[in-house]
Write a protein that binds this DNA or RNA. Structure first.
Length: 944
RNA sequence: GCCCUGGUGGUGGAAUCGGUAGACACGCAGGACUUAAAAUCCUGUGACCAUUGCGGUCGUGCGGGUUCAAGUCCCGCCCGGGGUACCA
């Protein structure tokens, strides 16, 4: 019988479904293995061949682990809240839930065809109320928590209140914004008086008595400064025309990517998550997990730890100080000016009357640019002198103060001390504005640029003269502490994460507002479900879509009309798979204790600074609060690469309707046009299909090459509809079968590498499966499997394959496994081996890669059980080694010939045998060997 | 600029610990079978030189180095992919 993959795959998929083969339960007698794929957003376009790459790899690994006796949790679900469904709803009025449902059905159909071993009973969808009930619960939990800087741990907010009751905020160090107390002083009560009783110079300390005398409103705002999710005014990219906030990557050249509308910077009251408190934990945790080094690096950079010092500069004519952060306190003696961000709060206060108009103009100009624009600006170091001077803390000399938009308000203190001798940017700024430099490095000629090395001894630096590096760094910090003008400081780039979105299709907040204060809705009333709206657009006065519903809590209190961002649901979904139907908790303690951390996480590297950071953040919080038994969500991670498309091109001669074959196109002036890859086979164009493709090509004429063919050009690029290079898995499953597709995607190369999709090679893999089939059955359907014992060479072939396949899977080398199995099948075919003892083991080896065919072959060989239930074969040592080894013999490192010798021989005997060999004399050319290197079972090298 | 990756035949890739570079496929060329095509099978296939056979030289982005031995280790460059940035 021919390899009839269509009927085989249909048969076994139905069988597995009927048997519930992939259902999994906690079983404390078995070791667990949790292998997870990043769940997809179910887009309307469906899957292309790139999407299942990671799923295939993880599915193979899950099946391998099952054979090894592990209890494997391998679930799948959908990240089903998101923008595309909402956009579609705006255009068509169709409810996003309906669109999402449809897309999920299509995804499921496509996934099912590929034969994945997901336990679909555990499916989760982030948009289902049963699921987002717990997203809301986690939000509330985070709201009711604070972070203790001393112990570096999340604590319930009640414990902070208790501390305040006892000692005010003495002896307690909750994570918060540096100037949290300043923002409280701006608040007013109903009478328009300051809400708090602290004077304008309050430094943030308060006593137990202060706390006890606070009213409920005062305590609300005070606590908000310490909660791990909090309401605060933050700068957002507001697009008035679209009525929504845009993410940075939704803006191109200062206008919205969609529609090209202007975008302005606006302060909005938003929920934020205090991820900045976890900077150090997130950084250190990376050392405890096995992730690809590049992802760890991306996260480290994103967290952006820098160690340095805070320095306070007194002002010449004002009480206030300017606080700067620097990583080079050792260069403090070289300060020639300070630069403030245009938004710095002291700017208007210190600017002199002569400079005021210039400064105002500059500040206004800067406000029009968003942060990203500003960074793209030219290198000409724009800035304006404020007219004010600071006083150098050591030399007491005047230091001019500038503003410049290269200083960002959002990083550090929004102010920098400039040392032109030691920083290239400061050097550029000084040159441009003709500010005198202070030279502080030995032998440094500052006419060319700054000296950025830390290893050059200092000069003109008073007590630091002659020192450099960390010695100077530490000595300066000591000196700063002594004169009380600075201290050691660690700064992080990581910012708190905005958690509000002005969208419809996302999780609603379990929050309403009473007297302007946010109130959490009781756990018993969760989930708070999405209300119906007439349109999925913002209201006329710019409120989010949910406001259209006139939604009220208890019929009187305004609800929070924002929704949660996309990363909310995906930050904890791996927990829900453990116990997806649980109504009492995110998952039962038993289930979480059993399944624990994800052992292997497979997904794209593009989530490095989003999902992969946020889910670590939430896991740490939940772990600290003892809701879950582990502190890092994903132990081992592998990033699959992207599969790129191979686009085909035709070449039209300019201003004609003539197309010229790619190999002849240089002779003409041509225009390159896409041709759909379905009309191209082996770069040869199906001319008739092309003519019928689009009306404009109907009367096209073709200049063929000498073989009478029309060749297409090609390019490797991202798969996309507009490039006509999308290859769907469905077509390939139809044509070659799921097993072939699975093997081929693995055979393409290492999973973590990006590579072009090219269907050319798929025949080779398909042939391999056919040759495998022929070991069991000839083309007439006669079963060849025999019960006679196998010959030694066949057993050697088998056991070598077992060893190689097992080793390669253990080191996640999916591609080489296919090669090893091909080699085994080629050898067994040559040996005409049809022995059941060999073939049964071969079927088990094959089953992770080609599960349908493996089941079929297992059955053909006369077995009644399922191949999936068989334990993984063990490679027997006696069949792994030959009696002889073919030694390569090299002369001065050049390999000349092989000699077969018994593996029993020791190095001296090998040397003797080689020297006795007839060819040795020839290659010695009369020389005496100076040295002979023998590495047993590897190589012989003769040095002359 | 900085950080992370990668660079091997016509193509995808293999070489796991410093030990025979190019496994396994694709493609291509030639042959067998066939009226023919497909399918299948066989042979060859890194480049260059020599071919009557034996064989020889070069070769893993480039230039150096360490070593008996380097795709693999070290130093200095070049190019591609990704991340990030007036980050103080």
């Amino acid at each position: 019988m021919e390899y009839n993959f269509q009927s085989i795959e249909k048969k076994w998929q139905a069988h597995w479904k009927e048997q519930g083969s992939y259902r999994v339960k906690e079983d404390t007698n078995k070791k667990k293995f949790y292998i997870l794929d990043m769940f997809p957003y179910p887009s309307g376009a469906g899957l292309h061949v790139g999407h299942p790459l990671g799923y295939i790899a993880s599915d193979i690994f899950a099946r391998f682990k099952r054979h090894q006796g592990f209890n494997v949790l391998h679930p799948m679900g959908y990240d089903s809240f998101g923008l595309p469904a909402e956009q579609y709803a705006i255009q068509t009025g169709q409810h996003p839930a309906i669109t999402t449902e449809k897309n999920i059905a299509r995804y499921r159909e496509q996934l099912d065809k590929i034969g994945f071993s997901f336990d679909w009973d555990r499916e989760v969808r982030t948009s289902s109320p049963e699921y987002y009930k717990w997203t809301q619960w986690i939000f509330k939990t985070i709201y009711n928590s604070w972070f203790d800087n001393t112990t570096q741990k999340t604590m319930p907010i009640a414990s902070l209140i208790e501390a305040f009751e006892k000692n005010g905020n003495y002896n307690v160090s909750p994570a918060c914004d540096d100037n949290w107390h300043a923002s409280l002083l701006e608040l007013k009560n109903n009478e328009g008086q300051p809400l708090y009783f602290f004077g304008a110079n309050w430094n943030g300390e308060f006593t137990a008595t202060d706390w006890q005398s606070m009213n409920e409103e005062q305590r609300y705002h005070l606590l908000m400064c310490f909660r791990l999710t909090y309401l605060a005014d933050s700068m957002v990219n507001w697009c008035p025309a679209l009525g929504t906030v845009l993410a940075n990557d939704e803006i191109k050249d200062g206008v919205s990517e969609r529609g090209g509308h202007p975008v302005v910077q606006k302060k909005m009251r938003q929920w934020s998550m205090r991820i900045s408190a976890f900077a150090e934990r997130l950084l250190n945790g990376l050392d405890t997990i096995e992730w690809p080094e590049n992802i760890k690096e991306i996260q480290r950079n994103w967290i952006g730890k820098s160690e340095g010092a805070t320095v306070f500069f007194d002002l010449e004519k004002h009480q206030e100080q300017i606080e700067v952060f620097t990583t080079r306190p050792d260069t403090l003696m070289g300060v020639s000016f300070l630069t403030l961000a245009p938004e710095h709060p002291l700017v208007s206060q210190i600017t002199t009357d002569e400079q005021r108009s210039a400064v105002n103009e500059y500040v206004e100009k800067a406000a029009l640019k968003n942060e990203r624009d500003r960074q793209v600006q030219s290198k000409e170091m724009s800035g304006v002198f404020t007219g004010a001077f600071a006083i150098h803390p050591f030399t007491q000399k005047q230091v001019p103060i500038y503003i410049g938009d290269y200083v960002l308000a959002g990083y550090g203190t929004g102010a920098v001390m400039a040392v032109p001798a030691g920083d290239q940017r400061d050097w550029d700024f000084a040159k441009h504005h003709n500010i005198p430099m202070v030279l502080i490095f030995e032998n440094h000629d500052a006419s060319e640029g700054a000296c950025t090395s830390k290893e050059v001894p200092l000069i003109h630096s008073d007590f630091l003269n002659g020192l450099c590096g960390s010695e100077a760094f530490n000595k300066m910090i000591e000196a700063l502490l002594e004169i009380q003008h600075g201290n050691r400081k660690v700064n992080y780039r990581l910012r708190d994460a905005v958690f509000s979105r002005q969208r419809y299709w996302g999780e609603p907040f379990p929050v309403y507002f009473k007297d302007g204060q946010a109130q959490m809705i009781d756990d018993q009333q969760l989930p708070v479900t999405l209300p119906e709206v007439d349109k999925y657009l913002p209201t006329e006065d710019g409120e989010p879509p949910l406001a259209r519903s006139q939604w009220k809590y208890d019929n009187q209190f305004v609800m929070e009309y924002n929704t949660m961002p996309g990363w909310a649901g995906s930050s904890w979904y791996f927990l829900r798979y453990m116990d997806p139907q649980n109504n009492d908790f995110i998952a039962s303690k038993e289930a979480m204790n059993y399944w624990g951390q994800v052992d292997l996480y497979m997904g794209g590297a593009e989530h490095a600074t989003g999902h992969l950071l946020y889910s670590r953040f939430w896991t740490m919080i939940l772990h600290d609060l003892e809701h879950i038994p582990f502190g890092e969500p994903f132990y081992k991670m592998i990033n699959q690469g992207m599969i790129l498309g191979r686009s085909s091109f035709v070449y039209r001669i300019k201003d004609t309707n003539q197309f010229v074959s790619a190999d002849l196109r240089k002779e003409y002036n041509t225009q390159q046009l896409y041709a759909d890859i379905s009309m191209v086979d082996n770069d040869k164009l199906d001319i008739e299909a092309f003519k019928n493709w689009l009306p404009e090509y109907q009367n096209a004429e073709f200049i063929l090459n000498e073989k009478g063919e029309y060749l297409c050009g090609f390019e490797v690029e991202k798969m996309s509809k507009s490039k006509y290079n999308v290859q769907t898995p469905d077509e390939l499953v139809e044509k070659f079968g799921a097993d072939t597709l699975r093997c081929y995607e693995m055979f393409l190369g290492p999973v973590e590498q990006s590579k072009p999709w090219d269907t050319k090679g798929i025949n080779g893999v398909h042939n391999f499966l056919r040759r495998m089939t022929r070991l069991y059955q000839n083309d007439e359907g006669v079963i060849l499997v025999v019960n006679t014992p196998a010959e030694k060479p066949s057993l050697q072939t088998l056991h070598r394959a077992i060893k190689k396949v097992t080793d390669d899977l253990n080191r996640f080398s999916w591609n080489t496994v296919v090669s090893s199995m091909m080699i085994a099948v080629n050898e067994l075919t040559e040996q005409k081996c049809h022995s059941k003892e060999v073939l049964d083991n071969m079927a088990i080896l094959l089953s992770p890669y080609a599960p349908h065919l493996a089941e079929e072959l297992w059955e053909i060989a006369g077995n009644t059980s399922s191949v999936m239930d068989q334990s993984w074969p063990i490679a027997l040592k006696e069949f792994l080694e030959d009696d002889t080894f073919s030694y390569p013999v090299s002369f001065n490192g050049k390999m000349r010939f092989n000699i077969d010798l018994s593996v029993q021989l020791n190095a001296a005997d090998v040397e003797k045998a080689v020297l006795a060999h007839e060819k040795t004399a020839h290659y010695l050319e009369g020389n005496t060997p100076k040295k002979i290197i023998v590495v047993p079972k590897r190589i012989v090298n003769i040095v002359m």
